[in-house]
Amino acid sequence: MLQSSISGLVSGGVYAAIGVCIVLLYSMVGVLNFAQAAIGVAGAYVTFLLYGEDQPLVLAVLAGVVVAAAVATLTGMAMALWFGEARVEVRSTASIAVLIGILAVGFWVFGDDARATPDVLPASGPEIAGVVIPGTAIGAIVFAVLLAGGVTLLLKRTVVGVRLRAIAQRPRTAELLGIPARRLSVAVWALSGAAACIAILLVAPSRTASVSSLSLLVVPALAAGLIGGFSSLWLTVLGGLLIGLLEGAIVTVEGIAPYRGSISFLVIVLVLLYSQRKEAWDASR
């Protein structure tokens, strides 16, 4: 039980990192981005391609991150252009279209051939309770924590952060005060895309490297974001790690093990029930 829980931490770290990106975008730009993981995957596949062509790993990773940031930037610009005034539901739905688009193109271009995914960090690592913790797992957790910490600092301690918060809370007022709202929100998109790409690169070696399965990592990440109420970055990190641990632990429990893929959904339902516990159902109808 302990062993497989620990092995679940790799995934947990990545759920947390992608979850942080989602929460960041949601609170700053007002989009629940279903394509968050897929945008990272788009960049990660550029890395795989370049690495497969014997390019140096550093270069391949850099190119991947840049491409992911570019895809996110384009998405952000399209969002601002076409859905600038739309409600958050509409914008989030538009992100589903982006997800489906990336899935379709990815499938078409990369198919389902076996490919080697490079280890961004060393595959070997310390042994805890008889489980070798891959460098990527530690990297994923550290990355999630750094990302959450970095974003928190940025928002609280810098002028850019103050402006971002202003845009998030009073978009029109902020714009009237001369804050370049559109440019800043596109920058948030670019940052989230780059971060998602790094997260995907960290998890890819331990997962089936296919466009669809990596893109759908967004589901547990959304569950992590929900635990954080789509506002708290730290709770999101905790939530991601918790889901990873649970997924790992449940493998050893006979009977329910085959249902481990549904844990994210169970978490989503439970959090929703808990957060809505004071709602009178009749009133909210």
């Binding site: 092995s7 679940g8 790799v10 331990s206 997962r207 089936t208 296919s210 669809s212 493998v251």
Partner: peptide, 9 residues
Amino acid sequence: LTVSDDPTP
């Protein structure tokens, strides 16, 4: 495990 899971467990 499903086909897309981490097979480590």
